[in-house]
Design a protein around this nucleic acid. Sequence first.
DNA 1: GCATATTTAACAAACGTTTGCTATCATGAT
DNA 2: ATCATGATAGCAAACGTTTGTTAAATATGC
Lengths: 334, 334
Amino acid sequence: MNITIKDVARELGVSYSSISRALNGKEGVSKATRKKILEAAERMGYQPNDLARGLVNRISKTVGVIIPDINNPFFGEIVAGIIDASNENEYNIFLCVSGWNPALEKEYFNTLLKKRVDGIILKSAGKNEDYDNVKSPLMIIERYSKYHEFDSVEVDNELGGYLAVNHLLDCGYEHLAFILGKEDFFASQRRLKGARKALEDRGMTLNEDMVIEGSFSIEGGRQAAKQLFERGKPIDAVFGMNDLIGMGVLQYCNESDISVPDQVGVIGYDNISYAGLPQIRLTTIHQPKYELGKMLFETLLDEIKNKDNAKPTKKIILNPELKIRKTTRSGMHP
Amino acid sequence: MNITIKDVARELGVSYSSISRALNGKEGVSKATRKKILEAAERMGYQPNDLARGLVNRISKTVGVIIPDINNPFFGEIVAGIIDASNENEYNIFLCVSGWNPALEKEYFNTLLKKRVDGIILKSAGKNEDYDNVKSPLMIIERYSKYHEFDSVEVDNELGGYLAVNHLLDCGYEHLAFILGKEDFFASQRRLKGARKALEDRGMTLNEDMVIEGSFSIEGGRQAAKQLFERGKPIDAVFGMNDLIGMGVLQYCNESDISVPDQVGVIGYDNISYAGLPQIRLTTIHQPKYELGKMLFETLLDEIKNKDNAKPTKKIILNPELKIRKTTRSGMHP
DNA sequence: GCATATTTAACAAACGTTTGCTATCATGAT
DNA sequence: ATCATGATAGCAAACGTTTGTTAAATATGC
């Protein structure tokens, strides 16, 4: 069906090793024949078969990416970064969406292995999955204990949590509530740890009653907020562990005529683009998502290239930033 | 590095043809040896090499998807549909993002061909690209004349435009303005055609001065709106050719103290999830994006399976729906 | 002009599968 | 027992590349 190297060889009456060398710019073929070959290949519309190439080279120029949810712009921007970086390096990306389902995630992982990807970038939904005896390069988005043997890139969650709560306290809020994302237990815990620290730095302590789990979606945030406020206990600020939750809280406040930021302050996490809409303007913790994606790919590629000579595991940590908008009062402290 | 069929064969002292047959559930191998082989494969952690498989089977179980922009939730949802459908059929997706750049798009297309994907789903950014002598199955998202030989799935753009303007007129708006998306000339034109028809049905005509081009982004919409309103001519409704543009118009109105929907009505297109936010509630034309994605993949798969016996080209058209929210006045007509 | 060094090109094996064909072996009918 | 039958298993070619080795051709030095 497709034109192969052999067809070109037959046409020109040369051996196919010459064709291969000419096409790959390797030496061992004279200028004249090289030119002849290149022309013929072009003219005949020859397209190398990357499957065959991959088979002999043991390199497929292909990377697998497994994320939990593509409609969450947080992951969307990471993927955009990964894809751009992969393109710059002549790689292609298999995109897999696990829907926060560990079984599906594992299944995808195995298919990628069969497809002989050169490496995998994984944001795991599982708390307990182990990708133990994995020999191919693997990058983990946000690594936890289990994954100590793999490289990872992450944005400092503890610092982010700290920044968020610190800001809330700066604004004069006193009764803080927290909505975790149940899909991503570990990240939420880390952020909470930072939150705790910020409180303790001021001699306060975190009220464990005021920590609740919701799901990483607008509706999840709305419902969690409802649950929180209907208890009747005093709350004057809510820290949602991602922007969707934060937006859900905003939605609840709006419906319940709670004025933001006066009565209640709201802060989110991620800084997805929609958080900056003039109608929303959610204060949040910015994560450099696109850059994270680029770095994920580049570090993975590094790993792929020096697969043999084992190097120490890398753990790259990027810094989050506080992004103040209009859902928190303007601070009294600088 | 990886365990191959030969390793398993050696271990068991059988030929590799038997291994292959056992693993693929083909006949020609006794129950006993089949069992023995399956166990050994499992125990040794054998993972078939899909590159080799693809090479001999001429089927890679892989499909390429080229979209212009992954951070536009419109495409995000389509991709979600494609990925889900591909997963159900044991396919994997190469995701490529062209950034509305025809050259990059073409480049991606060729790489996909080299990767020997079984088919390609393409949303072209080009007005003039031709994928003429393409032999592999190709699905076009929104087909135009050029692509008549390929299957396509699309949502009826003309009808969408008609519905939008019809609604605007129902609401009593009279001075309509239109912001096209310069990235997607054809879709915008189609929608505009529908718009024109809706006006003509009431004996009115479309004022060509009130048609302007912007880019498919919030900022693009904002700027286009600014340009439009600063002319000083009467405008009481704006039809943005996608929701991002619509949201940009809303943003402009907000900044300029133009009250929506009283003074000016705004309607978007696509019904991306953020258009439904309580703070936005943009009236828009709903496109069944997820379903579109699923159908794209399924139709493509169909095509892949009956590649040989040529069938007539399919053109599947889904219907858009008017989604009334709060950026247009409640209609005076039913 | 001859021996030697160097460039150029071809051969063939390998990558990991699948599969048509052939060989072996037991089974049952005669 | 003999023969045909059918099931089981192995051989080897093929898919489209890359690449080490070898053979032929050309260039170099004297």
